[in-house]
Amino acid sequence: MKTRLPRKRKVHLRIRVNGETHEVAFAPHKTLLEVLREDMGLTGTKHGCELGECGTCTVLIDGEPQLSCLVLGLECEGMDIITVEGLADGPQPHPLQQSFAELGAAQCGYCTPGILLASKALLDEDPNPPRDRIREALSGNLCRCTGYIKIYEAVELAARRLKDPKAEPSREILRGYEV
């Protein structure tokens, strides 16, 4: 790759990602997804369909879940972006990450970054969402592994833990329901 000509007409922008302001140079036709993954090395945000049809590339832009595959990097100038890398508090995983891991809400994990961020936006807005609200809020994120139930249960557990860090999952959730 040494022989490559210098890339023409890159844009230089400031964007705020996970609380830090970065100066990034990238080609103007790049999506935020490409900028994050290729120009900033933040590969936690996954690329799936790249057409808006799966939700795995979801990030928070000014607190709102949006699809990074359908927004230009340069449209994000001055905006506050949160990716999955920004969820944990230092070494301490976010309660959502913790409960997803504990309850098997991530299997292959491909959908997980997007679902975590969509869930975070929901809990920021409604700390006590009923199941229907969770289902609605996550209806733009496809998961081909879990069947969603584990995901809903994990979001509910995280909601409880955000109020009471000691909250535990119910026996039914861990062991199944008796019939």
Partner: peptide, 20 residues
Amino acid sequence: MAGSGENKTAMMRLSKFKYL
């Protein structure tokens, strides 16, 4: 490495344009 070329991953890219 971060910032490496576009063509390493198969992705659907936007066509090129000038943005106003």
